[in-house]
Deep mutational scan, measured.
Amino acid sequence: NITNLCPFDEVFNATRFASVYAWNRKRISNCVADYSVLYNLAPFFTFKCYGVSPTKLNDLCFTNVYADSFVIRGDEVRQIAPGQTGNIADYNYKLPDDFTGCVIAWNSNKLDSKVSGNYNYLYRLFRKSNLKPFERDISTEIYQAGNKPCNGVAGFNCYFPLRSYSFRPTYGVGHQPYRVVVLSFELLHAPATVCGPKKST
């Protein structure tokens, strides 16, 4: 009989979030998941669920729940959905087409922007091929755009693959930082360890 609440607040209220290319994953298990708490945590810009209804979450049980978190800019949030393409979905964080879970995003301009520009958040701009779903690539190998090998040196047709967002508070919403948490629900042929409040007794 599990009584402890799932530590969603640790994920959502973390002081620092990860850069999207090096997104963070927390496995959540053996706890009571009260998803209604999430609705009250922040004024969400996005709370979209796929393959599951957000209002039914509190009635369900899962084997595992994974919470992935990272920062992107406002106009990239739409890429965090099944079947999307674009720089983020292709080279940084890719959801599977049959994704079961929820994408939660909110504006973090007050936390993640600086007047002089916050350069701490990076994204991958160049990659030889698209990522597979939930693949994480943290390599910093020089990207070869031409025929000549780069031998690890940046220059003509040889690019450092990561680029930094420079978040400034005066930017338009599309270029402001957004914190994203992706909850993916895993149903294996194994005992369910993460249940809503109704199912945990």
Rank of each mutant, 00 (worst) to 15 (best):
N1Q: 12
I2T: 14
I2Y: 14
I2D: 13
T3L: 10
N4K: 15
P7V: 10
F8L: 13
A14S: 10
A14R: 09
T15M: 09
A18W: 06
N24S: 15
C31V: 06
C31A: 06
V32F: 10
D34A: 07
D34E: 08
Y35S: 10
V37I: 13
V37L: 14
L38T: 06
Y39N: 15
N40D: 12
L41W: 14
L41A: 14
F44R: 15
T46P: 07
K48H: 09
P54V: 14
T55V: 12
K56Q: 14
L57T: 09
N58V: 08
D59R: 12
T63L: 09
S69M: 07
F70H: 01
R73Q: 07
G74D: 00
I80R: 02
A81K: 08
G83N: 12
Q84V: 11
T85F: 08
N87L: 15
I88V: 09
A89K: 03
L95R: 03
L95S: 02
F99Q: 01
C102H: 03
V103I: 09
W106K: 05
S108W: 02
D112M: 03
V115P: 14
S116P: 10
S116D: 13
S116Y: 08
G117K: 04
N118V: 04
Y121Q: 10
F126E: 00
R127E: 00
R127S: 06
S129T: 15
E135C: 05
E135G: 09
R136M: 07
R136V: 06
D137T: 03
D137C: 04
D137K: 03
I138N: 11
I138D: 12
S139R: 10
E141C: 08
I142C: 04
I142M: 12
I142R: 02
Y143V: 04
Y143F: 13
A145W: 02
K148R: 13
P149T: 06
C150L: 00
N151G: 14
F167W: 02
P169V: 04
G174A: 07
G174M: 06
H175V: 01
H175M: 01
P177T: 01
V180Y: 01
S184V: 12
S184E: 07
E186Q: 13
T193I: 10
V194K: 12
G196S: 12
T201F: 15
